[in-house]
């Protein structure tokens, strides 16, 4: 009985805790945003799949040489993703069979509210004003939760290293940006499919281009709002971004907002549980005590009753005994008298 009660209570409290507190962690009034944050605009309709950006990225980041050289375009026949040896890859898609292929460059999107940063339990990731989301391998534990969390499947891991594996992902060439240089890929692109600039200006450029050519472009700038927005923006020829392997269903909720409800429940549990549990403990203890006292009282009463009963019985026995005794005495007396009477009669006779 009691158990069911407490379980119901705990369940109820748990539910209300985690669901009632889904309000945003804090009002966005406290967040200034990054008005001058940098970014890159990628126009898939301009990309010719030459892999020059891949080669440049490999070079400026000192990554290991790939098995097939970068001018070997047969690599494009397979769909690839970023891995520990390549921060960026270009993939080929054929949205409508028989028509020209479209190419898309994949790399870290440098989210405005990075899921990787939200997920990392040692703060290894940081969003910077340059736009770059940078990673610090000197604290990384290698739990790989950042890889789980990234909605774009970008971070890769050095699974083949035994002692010092790192998470590997595009840095937006953060060191080069600090030197005032362009990211390697942007500099190398022969077709101006990549353009570096302030994100807010890039957004204007993107929308101008998209709205000016409504027949050509999907009327959407990918990265403007996806997962709270990204520094890397993309526009694509029709029919869709999905045709280029991009997830169109990510929604606009940023990673910190997705977890803020659960995080808000943590201090609530720490604040409410001790009060509730100690209260239940005190109640059950009090109940025990009362039960104990009742038991004690009942035992005393029982003892009292028992002794009273015993006394009564004794008295009864006594009276009974007395009666019996009396009778016996009477009988004896009678007998004696009779005997005496006989004797005297006999005496008279004798």
């Amino acid at each position: 009985m009691k158990r069911r009660h407490f379980l119901g209570l705990m369940g109820a409290a748990g539910v209300s805790l985690t669901t009632a507190v889904t309000a945003k962690a804090s009002s966005s009034a406290d967040v200034a945003g990054m008005p001058n944050v940098g970014g890159v605009l990628f126009d898939a309709s301009r990309c010719i799949g030459c892999r020059k950006c891949e080669a440049a990225c490999n070079q400026v980041n000192d990554l290991p040489k790939p098995a097939k050289p970068f001018d070997d375009l047969t690599v494009l026949d397979a769909t690839r993703r970023t891995d520990a040896k390549s921060y960026t890859v270009v993939n080929k898609y054929v949205p409508k069979p028989g028509e020209n292929p479209v190419f898309r460059k994949i790399q870290c999107n440098h989210c405005m509210e990075p899921a990787c940063a939200s997920a990392c339990f040692v703060k290894a990731f940081k969003k910077t004003e340059t736009g770059a989301v940078v990673y610090d391998p000197s604290v990384c534990v290698g739990c790989r939760y950042c890889m789980v969390a990234c909605p774009f499947n970008i971070p890769a891991y050095e699974y083949d290293k035994a002692l010092s594996p790192r998470v590997m992902k595009c840095t937006l060439c953060y060191p080069r940006l600090l030197e005032g240089k362009l990211p390697g890929c942007v500099e190398a692109c022969p077709k101006e499919a990549l353009q570096f600039g302030k994100r807010r200006e890039l957004l204007n450029i993107a929308w101008d281009r998209v709205t000016a050519n409504p027949d050509k472009y999907v009327q959407h700038v990918y990265g403007e709002h996806e997962m709270g927005g990204t520094s890397w923006l993309s526009i694509a020829p029709k029919p869709s971004f999905a045709a280029l392997g991009m997830d169109e269903g990510l929604g606009t909720t940023s990673a910190p907002e997705l977890t803020s409800g659960a995080l808000a429940a943590v201090p609530a549990v720490a604040g409410i549980w001790p009060v509730l549990l100690t209260g239940i403990y005190a109640i059950s203890k009090r109940k025990d005590k009362i039960a104990e006292e009742e038991k004690k009282a009942a035992v005393e009463a029982a003892i009292a009753k028992a002794s009273a009963d015993a006394e009564a019985k004794l008295a009864e026995e006594l009276t009974k005994a007395e009666v019996a005794n009396k009778r016996r005495i009477e009988v004896e007396v009678k007998k004696a008298l009779e005997a005496a009477a006989k004797d005297s009669e006999g005496g008279e006779d004798a």
Partner: peptide
């Protein structure tokens, strides 16, 4: 003031 919700949180 914080620049990102992440930093604020």
């Amino acid at each position: 003031m914080f620049n990102t919700l992440q930093d604020l949180m």
